[in-house]
Design a protein around this nucleic acid. Structure first.
Lengths: 246, 246
DNA sequence: GAGCGATGCGAACAGTGTGCGCTAATTGGC
DNA sequence: GCCAATTAGCGCACACTGTTCGCATCGCTC
C-alpha cells in the first residue's frame, strides 16, 4: 500500500501551474453567478460551497472578495435592482404614468427573481441601484408639484405597496414551484376542503369559486393594477388638494 | 478499563423513571415557546435543539408534534396573527375607520414580532387567524357598498401596503438591534457619508438632513398614516364612483 | 533575482435540520 | 388487574452549513 489515489505529498507530483486563463475571481463575477444560482434553484440552494464550485473555485476563496454570505446576498439584491430603468419623464402632467411604470417595473423585476421577496423583510436595503431609482422618482414627483417630503411619502407608499403585493405573489409562486404542481392542480386539490371553508368563511369561499376558472396570471395583474390605481388616485387627490371623499 | 463515565449498558443501572410531571409536550406549547424565543433572540436564533432545550426536551422530540421547521414557523406566524382582533364595525359609514384599525393593528403586531417580516416573503400565508380577519374585513367592506370582488381587491391593497411598509420598518429595526446602536448613533455615524450622498443624490440627501432631528418613531407613524390615508382616499373614490383626479 | 502583498484553498470547527430505531409511558380491551 | 398496542421522547448519525486559520502560490515592484 505505498500508492493510493490521494495526491502524493511530494514536490515532484505537484499539479503544475495551470495558469489562470480566466481573470480568476472578481466580486462582480461572484455576484452575477450568485444571481444565476438563485434564479435557477431558489434561495435555499445558495451555499458558499456550491457557488464556489460553479465558479471553479473553492468555497473559502469567495471570502477574499465578499465579507459574508449576508453581504453577498445584499449585493445580489442590488444587482437585480440594476435591471430597473427609471422612466425619467419629467413632464409634470405625466407623473402618474411615470410612477406606474416604476411600480410595474419593480414588480416585474421581483417576479423575475422571486427569491428577492424572502430577503426584503430581512435586510434594510440601501443599495445604489434602488437609491438611483428613488432619486429619479423623487424628481418626477417634485416636478409634478409635490413638496419634497410629500414626494418621499408618496414614493414610500407606492414602493411599500409593490413590495407587499409582489412579495406574496412571489411567495405563492415559489411554493408552487417547490411543490411541482401547476396552479390548476392546486386549486383542484383544494376543492374538497372548499365546503368546510365556505361554511366557516363564506365570503372567502365565494371568492375562491368565483376566481377558480380565470387565468391566474391575468388575475394577479388585474389585482395589482387595481390597487396601484387606487393609490395613484389617492395621491392625485392629495396633490391637487382636493376634498377627501367618503 | 472496565469502567468509564459513559452510561453502563446494563439493565441494573437504568436511570429510573422520573415520571413526567409536566404535561410533556404539546404542539401548542411548542409553538408558544417558539414565539417567545423568536421575540427574545430573533430569527437566526431559532433552532430545533435550542427550542427543545428550552422546553426541557430533546431536539428530535419536537418532530412528534410538528412535521418540519418550516411548518413550525408557519404555526408561529399564525399564532401571533391570533393577537389581531377584528374591529367588527358593520356600520356602513365607518368602513374607513374599521379598515384603518385593521391596518394599524396589523402593523402593531408585526412591529411587536419583527421576525415575521422575514417570513412573509418566504411562505404563502393561509393560517386560520389571518383568514378570520380577512373574512371579517370583507364583511365590513361589503356592508360599505363594495362588491365582493372589489372588497377583496381593496383588502389586498391595504394588506399589501401594510406588509410592505411594516416589513421595511421591521427590517430596519432588527438591523439596528443587531448592531446594538441607537437610531441617533446610526445617523451620526452616517453623517460623514452625507456629503457624497448629497452630491450624487441631492434629494435623498436633503431628506436625510431634514428628517435628522425628528423622533424616528413618530416619523414612521406619520409616514405609515400618510400612505394609509391616501389608499383609503383612493378606495373611497372607487366606492362612490367619483371621477378620477389628475 | 528577492521580497511582498494579494489570492486561492484544504482542513477543521461548531452548529444545523432531520431520519432511524430503541426505550419508556400510556391507553384500550378483557 | 393484566397484557397488547399505540404513542412520546430521545440518543445517534448523516449530510450540510458558514466561517477561520495557516499555508502555498501567484503577479508585481525594486
Amino acid at each position: 500500500m505505498t500508492t493510493d489515489d490521494r495526491p502524493i505529498p511530494s514536490v515532484w507530483a505537484r499539479p503544475g501551474r495551470e495558469k489562470r486563463e480566466q481573470p480568476a475571481l472578481s466580486r462582480q463575477q461572484i455576484v452575477a453567478e450568485a444571481v444565476r444560482l438563485l434564479d435557477a434553484e431558489g434561495v435555499e440552494a445558495l451555499s458558499m460551497r456550491k457557488l464556489g464550485t460553479r465558479l471553479g473555485a473553492g468555497a473559502t476563496s469567495l471570502y477574499r472578495h465578499v465579507a459574508n454570505k449576508d453581504e453577498l446576498v445584499e449585493l445580489a439584491v442590488d444587482e437585480v435592482f440594476g435591471e430597473l430603468r427609471a422612466p425619467g419623464m419629467n413632464d409634470a402632467e405625466r407623473w402618474r404614468e411615470a410612477t406606474a411604470a416604476c411600480a410595474q417595473g419593480l414588480r416585474a423585476v421581483i417576479l423575475r427573481h422571486p427569491w428577492i421577496a424572502s430577503m426584503l423583510g430581512a435586510m434594510a436595503n440601501y443599495g445604489p441601484n434602488l437609491m438611483r431609482m428613488s432619486e429619479d422618482l423623487l424628481g418626477t414627483l417634485e416636478a409634478a408639484g409635490f413638496s419634497l417630503t410629500e414626494a418621499n411619502s408618496a414614493m414610500n407608499t407606492v414602493f411599500a405597496y409593490v413590495m407587499g403585493m409582489t412579495s406574496s405573489e412571489a411567495a405563492w409562486l415559489t411554493m408552487l414551484a417547490r411543490s411541482g404542481q401547476t396552479e390548476e392542480e392546486w386549486s383542484e386539490r383544494l376543492k374538497p376542503a372548499l365546503e368546510g371553508l365556505t361554511r366557516s368563511h363564506p365570503r372567502l369561499g365565494a371568492l375562491f369559486t368565483a376566481q377558480a376558472d380565470e387565468d391566474p396570471v391575468r388575475l394577479r395583474e388585474r389585482e395589482f393594477a387595481y390597487g396601484l390605481d387606487r393609490i395613484l388616485d389617492g395621491l392625485a387627490l392629495a396633490r391637487s388638494g382636493g376634498p377627501a371623499p367618503t
